[in-house]
């Protein structure tokens, strides 16, 4: 009852021995996530959190059959971590770090293109299928297994959306943070497509925010779907004024300054229900008349 990850997903942790990693990996394991391996160069052959540690992703995959990874490596090492994940042909990698240089992301996107690997993030809380697997840093105790898919660019608003589904008496099939960076591995349309294919997702909550045209691209994809599941949308950042800027290139690339209202309009036109306040999501969910979790 999920997309991308479930209780069978075999997870390896890139950078498992760090303080942050240890803290979150332990929580994920306690949650039931099947963590099968860790990778920390130079620490191969040891055990950490009772999990075998390898020097490379390739080795870890060969020995344990891992098919997904969570990276807890610092921003400047993300590029080489993704390279390893792609070369080992992992299905999924989740990158938590923020502050990955944009040029590195350009190279990372080129690596991912045509590869077997889907990257979630960077700068994301990760992905969680309630009751089954937690890949990332979600506060796991707020989640309820259910049939609402959540996809969001903002971390904290992901948590808000989860609470809103709970409030409506519903639960979540899978919750995904796309990441709050300028360039990220996975887009709204990718996740919307997966949620539409998932027989255990009845409706979707989509949370956008100012910057870029990610929401517009998601809306455009949704508009052309034959059988559309209900999408409740919200876009954050309306109260934020445009700061002073330098030059015009930014405006040219997006065809003028894109406001939060532009994004809301694009989503509404595509057939999504867009709410003004994130705390209105539960009302709209309740209106769908879905079976309670």
């Amino acid at each position: 009852m999920s997309i991308l990850v479930d209780k069978h997903t075999k997870v390896l942790i890139q950078g498992i021995t760090g303080t942050q990693a240890s803290f979150h990996v332990k929580r994920s394991m306690d949650y039931g996530t099947k963590v099968v391996a860790g990778v920390t160069p130079g620490k191969g052959g040891t055990f950490h959190l009772d999990v075998p540690v390898f020097n490379t992703v390739q080795e870890a995959v060969k020995e344990t059959g891992a098919n997904a990874s969570v990276m807890y490596v610092p921003a400047r090492f993300v590029k080489s971590a993704v390279k390893e994940a792609v070369e080992a042909e992992l299905d999924l990698s989740v990158c938590i770090a923020d502050g990955v240089p944009i040029k590195d992301m350009l190279e990372i996107k080129a690596m991912l293109h045509g590869s077997e690997t889907r990257l979630i993030g960077p700068n994301t809380p990760g992905i969680i299928t309630p009751g089954e697997a937690r890949l990332g840093i979600f506060p796991e105790n707020i989640h309820t297994p259910g049939r609402i898919g959540i996809v969001s660019r903002s971390s904290t608003l992901t948590y808000e959306a989860v609470l809103e589904t709970n409030r409506a008496g519903l639960g979540q099939s899978t919750v995904i943070g796309l990441g709050d960076d300028m360039i990220v591995g996975t887009a709204f349309e990718d996740i919307l497509e997966l949620f539409h294919k998932d027989t255990n997702t009845d409706a979707i909550v989509m949370i956008g925010q100012m910057g870029g045209t990610f929401e517009e691209a998601g809306a455009e994809f949704y508009k052309h779907l034959k059988h559309r599941k209900p999408v409740i949308g919200f876009v954050a950042g309306n109260a934020v004024p445009f700061g002073h800027k330098m030059g015009y290139a930014g405006d040219v690339i997006t065809n003028g300054s894109i406001t939060v209202q532009d994004k809301r309009d694009a989503m509404t036109k595509a057939g999504m229900t867009v709410v003004d306040s994130i705390n209105n999501i539960h009302d709209e969910l309740a209106k769908l008349g879905l079976a309670k979790a």
Binding site: L106, G212, A249, D251
Partner: peptide, 25 residues
């Protein structure tokens, strides 16, 4: 500039003639 949607470096050239680039944009 970085085209974030296409993850590429984009070159923008405008023959501004007597116009302002802000207006063209």
């Amino acid at each position: 500039v970085i085209d974030r949607m296409n993850a590429a470096i984009t070159l923008l050239i405008a023959d501004i003639k007597n116009r302002e680039i802000s207006e063209m944009a």
